[in-house]
Nucleic acid binder design. Sequence first.
RNA 1: GGGGCCGUAGCUCAACUUGGUUAGAGCGUCGGACUGUCGAUCCGAAGGUUGAGGGUUCGAGUCCCUUCGGCCUCGCCA
Length: 588
Amino acid sequence: MLKRTHYCEEPRETDIGRTVAVSGWVANWRDHGGVVFIDLRDRTGIVQVVFNPEENPEMHTRASKLRSESCISVSGEVSQRPEGMENPDLPTGMVEIVAGELEVHNVSEPPPFDVDNPGDVSLEARLSYRFIDLRRPEISKIFQARHRIFQVFRRFFDENGFLEVETPYLTKSTPEGARDFLVPSRLSPGSFYALPQSPQLFKQTLMVGGIDRYFQIVKCFRDEDVRASRQPEFTQLDLEMSFVDEDDIMEMTERAMAAVFEQVLDREISLPLPTMTFADAFERFGTDAPDLRFGMELKDISAVVADCEFRVFKNAVDEGGCVRGICVPGGAKMTRGEIDGLVEWVKQFNLPGLAWFKLEENGPSGGVAKFFSDAEIGAIRQKFDARTGSLFLFAAARRQKTHLPLAQLRCHAAAKMGMIPEDEFELCWVVDAPAFERVEESGHLTFPHHPFTTPYPEDVGLLEEEPTRARTKSYDLVLNGVELGGGSVRISDPELQMKIFSILGYNQEEVEERFGFLMRALRHGAPPHAGIALGLDRVVGKLLGIEDIRETIAFPKTQRGMCMLTKAPTRVDDQQLKDLGIALRESE
RNA sequence: GGGGCCGUAGCUCAACUUGGUUAGAGCGUCGGACUGUCGAUCCGAAGGUUGAGGGUUCGAGUCCCUUCGGCCUCGCCA
């Protein structure tokens, strides 16, 4: 076999006269009746190979039969291209390889789409032929960057004394959180393993075991609906430290992120990162993952409009709700149609409508402007510090109901107005999430983080009476409006842990059955510990400016959880089911 | 579980408002021409169960129902 001496993008003018061997795929071929040109591609780039009929007729004949995406190796002399035949668009465009030897490894069937000019090929087609899609330079670059990011993290945590310890994938189902993927056990018919939603309890156990500093790049599994930013299996950078508090984890995480930015993007980020509380984030941005690349913060004007003429506003306030909104600088330029479009758009977030008016040269106009007195307009204007030419958009509803639509509207409007600087990275911490949240419809308690998160000592007293007001030592890392990950100081006191469980409605027996191993560990010399987990698929995506994390995963699943390449999941043999003691029911 | 968009040649799309003859184009593929191109060019050809099934109609790519699949979204995602 012809052994490669160079990657395709390596031969340059300094190599002229040298004999090289390259291997790769035929990106393009041009047959001029005599001379045949082949653009050969590998993961680095493209180089042109020339086949001359006079030099070697037999090889020329074989070369003229090559077609796109066939796999070959070629050796030959690197030579300067003839005058005027250089291609400045290619890094190797000053030279070409004059073929001396050709080895055809595999003749490709016509590819289902054009690799180098894929146009708008659907993700569906690309994932079905991912082996071809991955040959595309821009796709290959994603995985090269992903690899570098992983290596920087690994080196960073190694250098900081962390041990990479693996935790099981076949583990125990826990009733909290997301739906588990289940794996039936053959040796214990009727029993199931669950794939881990995260290694949370194992890493806490490692701390009790004295590992002290742990990290792992690990797959996690959650059987919930897929989104552009969510996959049923995804990769986390998971870490945990003993004898530390929240500051230590945040500092360590920031430094790791800074190392990645520096070594992968060659960008500095200034540390320490800004911090805002969970409560402030919702107040100012309507979300716990604010995009700080632009302003346009939410303001509450309930007090201003409590007695205004506009019934919708007044009623909302009277009924214990609120009126909140945003001010879009320059938004007065929008047409009635565009504004109606925004109002329509926001309805998908379960808001019945938006009230709006413009602030123009000769005063307020349009929409609900006529309902407000000069004093009210002045107060609103002052609240937003608004300039002439602004557009105001307001939601009136229960406070909970205004968060999502306004947060979405803020980003949507900013994007529409071109206010988002695409090239900036704004990282921040969102801290002090409440221990519990109440689900509006059912009234039952849930939690923004997980039930192993420690409350502030001064808030422990609130747990029983006002659980949603008790803050926790938690921290989420947010980048440009996306949560990259989150963590917390863990509960290391078994009594406090039991108290949290009982607030969630578990009795002693249930806790013992579900979390017995954790409780036992906590009773045997548990050190204070804290940690964090980052979603690496998102980290890779954000760093590369990719919104859809499927692009950062080699073989992602579709929205229905199918692998386009293998068509998994599939039915299995009756014998396999029999071994597992499983009988399928007719689907109703 | 709810709402929305979509499915026509290998790929990307067209065939309209209002159902009407033989479903078109570009790229790709195949054949031919051409000794310096580089998204080569020129000439020619092949290529379709309009995702699948059913219905309405004299007639369905087009309308209706069911179903499969892709995408967005609410819920969900401790």
